[in-house]
């Protein structure tokens, strides 16, 4: 699992405009191409996207389209099919386009969000939409694509947990071995292996009970004046 972002070329955003001056369409297109197309030796042939990370800047909706290589596994779906697949359609980044919420958040879109598998990709097109006229400028910052979805690493388990697994695996073998050895060596008194789980359960219960009892001991005194050894018969004889 590599944490390095995929090498790709992100083209500057193109604003969708009509010819009329000052027309604000609220829609931008970002094209991403992969160098592997130009130079297949740089990376693996199969470009696969597992994760898209970016910081939002006033983009309200995001649509992700991907152009995949048409192969036997992914056949043409119609006569007009150029291989474009929609991975994400109008995904809301800001709950309210006019508001500020989510406007500058960091996003991490993973396979869970994508409606199709992003593999064998030729290029990716991101369509950014901001219908609100209040935000003139909108873009995505620090856009990065990753192959694996495991960007957020789960902290490693404590060593003894993993050790456990090993011993657990080994346990059965040992158990078999144990009984085997015992059967060989000591046929007179056959020592088996008790049910470890129930053993452990009852030991834990015993522990709990003892703790319960000890926490319920009284601190009150009955008013005894005995000090250890003060009623020793020898001492009393002298006094």
């Amino acid at each position: 699992m590599n944490d390095k972002p995929l090498s790709c070329t992100i083209k500057p955003a193109v604003c969708v405009t009509a010819d009329t001056k000052g027309f604000h369409s609220g829609c931008k297109i970002v094209d991403i191409s992969f160098p592997s197309i130009v130079n297949p030796e740089v990376t693996d042939e199969n470009v696969e996207i597992g994760e898209i990370r970016f910081q939002n800047f006033y983009v309200a909706f995001l649509t992700v389209k991907a152009k995949i290589k048409l192969t036997e596994d992914t056949p043409r779906e119609g006569p007009q099919d150029q291989g474009w697949r929609v991975a994400l359609r109008r995904f809301p980044l800001m709950p309210d386009p006019h508001g500020e919420t989510g406007a500058q958040d960091s996003f991490c879109l993973t396979r869970k969000h994508f409606s199709c598998d992003l593999s064998n990709i030729v290029s990716v097109r991101l369509i950014l939409q901001q219908p609100a006229p209040v935000w003139k400028e909108f873009k995505m910052e620090e856009l990065k694509l990753f192959r694996s979805s495991n960007g957020v690493r789960v902290p490693p388990l404590p060593t003894w947990v993993t050790e456990d697994d090993k011993t657990k695996v080994g346990k059965k073998e040992l158990e078999n071995e144990n009984t085997g050895v015992v059967a060989e060596k000591n046929s007179r008194a056959e020592v088996g292996v008790p049910d470890i789980d129930s053993l452990s359960a009852s030991l834990q219960q015993l522990w709990a009970l003892a703790e319960e009892a000890s926490s319920n001991q009284t601190e009150e005194s009955l008013g005894r004046y005995e000090v250890e050894g003060c009623y020793d018969i020898n001492l009393l004889a002298y006094s």
Partner: peptide, 20 residues
């Protein structure tokens, strides 16, 4: 009362240990 429970639990434990 706790000791009562404790003793019966210990007896149960013994039956677990008493494999034969």
């Amino acid at each position: 009362c706790v000791l009562n429970d404790y003793a019966s639990l210990a007896a149960n434990l013994f039956t677990t240990l008493d494999i034969q």
